[in-house]
Computed example of a mutant assay.
Amino acid sequence: MSHTAHIPSHRKPRQRASKSALRAGVAGGVLSTIAVAGAAGPAQAEPVTQTIEMPTITSGFSTAVAASAQATQQVALDLETQADEDAAAEKAAKTAKKAHAEAVRKAEAEKKAEAAAKARAEAEAKERAERASRTSERTTLSASSGSSDSGSSASAPSSSSSNVSGSAASIVAFAKAQVGDAYSLGSTGPNSWDCSSLVQAAYRTVGIDLPRVSQSQSTFGTQVSLDNLQPGDILYWGSAGSAYHVAVYVGGGEFVGAQNSSTGTVQRSLDYDRPTGAVRVL
């Protein structure tokens, strides 16, 4: 017999069968509970089964939205078409209005052109008649100027208010014969003059060659008072040496001058446009 036979063992005693059974029962209960809970799950998820039919509702809604979008697009297209038609109509109206205005303008322009042509024709006819009259008068004056240079006296034209003789008569007669001629700056006749060219041409009939411009003519000769004028004197406007206009004194308180483009060559009273001074060349 061993000496250690009666020494108690330090190993843990084996669990009894009852405890093992108890533990097995507890574990089984837990598993059963889980199984029951798992079995009960589908019954609680029945409401989810109803939501599976949502695709049918969504499909109908999508169709309605698509139809509404198409209708909206159609309305937009209709509005755009209407806007284009309105713009085209407005453009056509403006074009028609512009064409009408242009037609009216052309008609007025043609009417004015016809009136201007008629006026020119009448003016040309009148000018031809006046030119013929002046040519006849100049022929008579040329014949009388020879006798004037030889010392014989010549009476002034009937339109003169005083008798003029000698070279002065020729100057006055020539100046009066140009009344009615046109005025044009730089012109020297025979049917269009400026102020100084008319005076120069009048003095040239008696062999006196005056300077061409007003400034020089206003100092060519002896300065005389406006109260002591004689036919044939040169009248000037402005200062002597810087005059801006000249004319021929024809007697009777009147002068002849190429005034401006509006009046042409005219015979006027000194009171019509009072000169500044005068010079005597003869």
Score class of each variant (00 low, 15 high):
residue 5 A to V: 12
residue 268 R to K: 13
residue 63 T to M: 09
residue 185 L to A: 15
residue 89 A to V: 06
residue 224 V to A: 10
residue 163 N to Y: 12
residue 149 D to T: 04
residue 273 D to V: 10
residue 59 S to T: 15
residue 161 S to P: 09
residue 9 S to G: 09
residue 109 A to R: 12
residue 9 S to C: 12
residue 269 S to Y: 02
residue 219 T to V: 09
residue 19 K to N: 15
residue 99 A to D: 15
residue 167 S to L: 06
residue 139 T to G: 05
residue 70 Q to I: 01
residue 116 A to F: 06
residue 244 Y to K: 02
residue 180 G to P: 03
residue 30 V to D: 06
residue 93 A to S: 13
residue 243 A to Y: 00
residue 47 P to I: 00
residue 84 D to S: 14
residue 65 V to T: 10
residue 127 E to I: 08
residue 116 A to P: 04
residue 282 L to S: 07
residue 164 V to N: 04
residue 40 A to F: 11
residue 264 G to F: 03
residue 94 K to L: 14
residue 199 V to G: 02
residue 254 E to H: 12
residue 21 A to H: 11
residue 270 L to E: 07
residue 78 D to K: 03
residue 17 A to L: 06
residue 119 A to Y: 02
residue 198 L to A: 02
residue 217 Q to W: 02
residue 107 A to C: 00
residue 87 A to F: 11
residue 235 L to Y: 05
residue 158 S to F: 08
residue 278 A to Q: 01
residue 147 S to E: 14
residue 106 K to T: 13
residue 190 P to K: 01
residue 115 A to D: 11
residue 275 P to W: 00
residue 282 L to H: 08
residue 117 A to S: 15
residue 269 S to W: 00
residue 122 E to V: 09
residue 192 S to N: 05
residue 29 G to E: 08
residue 240 A to K: 05
residue 126 K to S: 15
residue 113 A to W: 07
residue 66 A to L: 06
residue 30 V to W: 06
residue 63 T to F: 01
residue 102 E to D: 14
residue 177 A to H: 01
residue 256 V to P: 04
residue 22 L to M: 09
residue 47 P to C: 02
residue 183 Y to E: 00
residue 83 A to S: 13
residue 269 S to T: 10
residue 61 F to I: 14
residue 45 A to D: 13
residue 265 T to V: 15
residue 13 P to V: 01
residue 108 E to Q: 12
residue 183 Y to G: 06
residue 40 A to V: 13
residue 241 G to Y: 02
residue 239 S to Q: 13
residue 280 R to P: 10
residue 155 S to F: 10
residue 152 S to T: 10
residue 41 G to T: 13
residue 38 G to W: 05
residue 56 T to S: 13
residue 189 G to F: 01
residue 197 S to P: 07
residue 278 A to T: 01
residue 117 A to K: 15
residue 103 A to G: 10
residue 174 F to D: 03
residue 34 I to D: 09
residue 212 R to T: 09
residue 183 Y to V: 01
residue 54 M to G: 02
residue 202 A to N: 04
residue 5 A to W: 07
residue 122 E to N: 04
residue 280 R to F: 10
residue 117 A to D: 14
residue 263 T to G: 05
residue 89 A to C: 05
residue 210 L to R: 00
residue 236 Y to E: 04
residue 78 D to M: 09
residue 265 T to R: 01
residue 269 S to V: 04
residue 16 R to G: 15
residue 54 M to A: 12
residue 11 R to M: 07
residue 169 A to G: 08
residue 3 H to W: 04
residue 207 G to W: 02
residue 78 D to I: 06
residue 62 S to H: 05
residue 100 H to F: 15
residue 214 S to H: 06
residue 119 A to Q: 13
residue 203 Y to S: 00
residue 226 L to Y: 03
residue 84 D to F: 07
residue 59 S to Q: 09
residue 152 S to G: 13
residue 134 R to H: 09
residue 241 G to S: 03
residue 203 Y to K: 00
residue 225 S to E: 11
residue 202 A to C: 10
residue 62 S to Q: 12
residue 58 T to D: 14
residue 249 Y to K: 05
residue 77 L to P: 03
residue 176 K to P: 01
residue 90 E to V: 14
residue 276 T to Q: 12
residue 204 R to Y: 11
residue 18 S to G: 13
residue 90 E to I: 08
residue 83 A to Q: 05
